[in-house]
Simulated scan of single mutants.
Amino acid sequence: MRKIYVIGIGAGDPDHLTLQAVKALNHANAFFVLDKGEEKSDLIGLRRDILDVHVKNTSYRLVEVRDPERDRRTSDYSPAVDDWRRRRADLYERFIAEDLGEDECGAFLVWGDPALYDSTLGILEEILDRGSVTFDHEVVPGISSVSALLAKHRTGLNRVARPVQITTGRRLAEGWPEGVDDVVVMLDARQAFTRHLDQDLHIYWGAYVGTEDEILVSGRLTDVSDRIEELRAEARARKGWIMDTYLLRRD
């Protein structure tokens, strides 16, 4: 039976990979990579760097496929995401069925950790439910962007006997979560932190964490909010995309 590895490769630094991840990389015959266009071509470059550093068998195949575009104009967020994931599932299914032999191993290289804000595991379950192709799969955890961010800022995720919540910018824009004082925010295209300047908050912010383009800012939100907005705008204009994460901590 075909074997699929879903490998967490960290936030961008080749040194983020675990020994388990390196072993899995060296078992794979083919790696599946989504091409997100010219603006994000350096993401494929980072994956190639990881393979160059850690894979000893140079006979592996790299299968690159253009990532389907998600409809960002519609106000119906969930249906748009469902359609996008379905079209991704079609591509993943084709890779497994056509690019892998019956006794070969394939691998998906997932940024951060496959269990945190990533769709790969759900898509593979959908493919198995379709029943057109069978495979075994194994998940290799990785260093998430959250872990990498907090390590860079030398702070912990939670405080003693107090909960922490991980959410999105879309949710934070709707209001501060109830019952928590520590909130990690991912996928924040709206810069939702600017809507909470009336609270006594400390922010630990980072973009492109673990890469050569890494940017870090921390401090009282009221003091550094404008600086983060400026840095974020400059970085996005320079690279054409941005990946950032932050922790908001209420005193």
Rank of each mutant, 00 (worst) to 15 (best):
E69M: 12
A80M: 09
D103Y: 00
R70W: 10
R66K: 11
E104S: 07
D103V: 13
R88E: 02
A97W: 13
R66C: 11
D71F: 06
E64Q: 12
E93P: 10
A30I: 07
E69G: 11
F95R: 08
R94F: 06
G37D: 09
R87A: 12
R47N: 06
F31H: 03
D76G: 03
N26Q: 10
S41Q: 13
D99S: 09
P79I: 03
V63T: 02
D71N: 14
P68Q: 04
I44R: 13
V53L: 15
R85A: 07
L100M: 13
I96H: 05
I44L: 11
F32P: 04
R85Q: 14
G37M: 11
K56A: 05
R73E: 08
L46Q: 07
W84K: 11
V53H: 08
H54Y: 01
L91T: 01
L51Q: 03
S78L: 13
R88V: 05
R73L: 12
K56N: 08
E64I: 11
V53R: 03
D83T: 15
F31I: 02
I96E: 02
S75P: 10
G45V: 01
D52V: 05
K36S: 04
H54G: 08
R61W: 06
R85H: 15
I96W: 04
V81S: 09
L51F: 04
S41V: 14
R85T: 11
L62W: 07
E39C: 11
F31C: 01
V63H: 10
A97C: 00
E102W: 08
R48H: 07
S41T: 14
E93K: 15
E98Y: 08
S59E: 12
R72V: 12
L25P: 07
L46T: 07
D67R: 10
V81T: 02
L62N: 03
N26M: 12
R85V: 06
H54F: 02
K36A: 09
F32I: 01
H27T: 04
E104Q: 01
L91E: 01
F31V: 01
D76I: 09
D82T: 10
R73M: 05
R73D: 08
H54M: 11
Y77M: 08
G45W: 06
D76W: 15
L25D: 00
W84I: 10
N29L: 06
K56Y: 09
Y92Q: 06
L25W: 04
D49C: 02
E93T: 08
R85C: 12
V65H: 14
L91A: 14
Y92M: 05
L51P: 05
L62E: 09
A28N: 00
S59V: 01
D71A: 02
I50N: 01
F32E: 00
Y92V: 13
D103C: 13
K40I: 04
R61N: 00
L100N: 00
N29I: 10
E93R: 14
P79N: 11
F32C: 05
D71H: 01
D49R: 15
H27R: 13
D71S: 06
A97L: 13
V81D: 04
K40D: 00
N57W: 02
G37C: 09
L62I: 11
R47K: 14
